[in-house]
């Protein structure tokens, strides 16, 4: 079952094309990683799929339904989006912000019930925020705010989760914990996830599929072991890298090869 189908998408900012002729599909329950250099159009692609930006050409189908025929309200019950969180100036507690994720499921004057409280508690637990739930969002760190945004998206109970660099400000423990959670939710609950990820090694370990984007085009797409190799990393990032296997999981691992002056010198000497 195909959840997201994008066909021949095009988008531009100030006449400068950022997405050129992009087509892809994401199946129900897939966890797809989107990677590529800065300015390659990853965030724009997320905005196109989340109805934050209208494509100039092409269209997005969600469950075979054109995105522009789905109202924002309906979409919010099916899709949650986490973007880079700015700072919050208003003194909501962590729990209150996560509770805002229930808005799409509540009628205008309907108060939050015990069921909503349960869902929020579960989201807080999944993102390791239970102990922080009473703290003010103005007083927590950037990484903690990022987790609050993820918890809010989970409280939305979506079928599709779009994530723009969800692990950017997180320490290793929380990166691994959240990526494990995402993989589990996609496998066990059929949650469809499209995530912009910068760390190729983590992406390769956790994602079922990687899409590599450069200059607004998806150049490679497929399972990590089929996509990540020396030639691809050079093509996408312009970086020389050795690619081997993870000793435990067998997922591809990318090691950038830095040319050190002393090594060059030694090579010269040998010659």
């Amino acid at each position: 079952m195909i959840r997201i189908r994008a066909s021949q998408l095009q988008a531009a900012y100030d006449g400068e094309p950022v997405i050129r002729d992009v087509s892809f599909e994401v199946r129900r329950g897939q966890f797809v990683g989107l990677a590529g250099p800065n300015g390659s159009g990853k965030s724009t692609l997320i905005r196109l799929v989340s109805k934050a930006l209208h494509p100039q050409k092409g269209r997005v189908l969600i469950d075979n339904q054109p995105l522009d025929q789905i109202s924002r309200e309906q979409l919010a019950r099916r899709m949650a989006v986490v973007r880079q969180e700015g700072r919050l100036d208003f003194e909501f507690t962590v729990r209150e912000v996560v509770m805002l994720g229930r808005i799409p499921h509540l009628k205008r004057f309907q108060g939050e019930g015990p069921q909503d409280a349960c869902i929020v508690d579960e989201s807080l637990r999944q993102t390791d925020l239970t102990d922080l739930s009473g703290r003010l969002v103005t007083e927590i760190s950037g990484g903690e705010r990022q987790r609050v945004a993820i918890a809010r998206a989970l409280a939305q109970q979506p079928e599709i989760l779009l994530l723009d660099e969800p692990t950017a400000h997180l320490d290793l423990r929380h990166q691994v914990a959240l990526l494990t959670l995402f993989r589990k939710l996609s496998r066990d609950q059929g949650l469809t996830i499209l995530a912009v990820l910068h760390d190729l090694n983590l992406a390769a370990q956790f994602c079922e599929r990687l899409m590599l984007i450069k200059e607004g085009q998806i150049l490679h797409s497929g399972p990590p072991q089929g996509v990540l190799d020396t030639a691809t990393v050079r093509e996408i990032y312009g970086v020389e890298a050795a690619v081997s296997r993870h000793p435990v999981s067998g997922a591809p691992c990318v090691y950038p090869v830095v040319e050190r002056q002393e090594e060059t010198d030694r090579l010269e000497a040998v010659r």
């Binding site: 924002r72 989006v81 100036d89 912000v97 805002l100 994720g101 808005i103 799409p104 945004a149």
Partner: peptide, 15 residues
């Protein structure tokens, strides 16, 4: 309340 999260975030909450 949702608007306090920012305009784009509140759009994603269906507003």
């Amino acid at each position: 309340n949702a608007l306090l999260l920012g305009e784009e975030a509140s759009k994603h909450l269906g507003i």
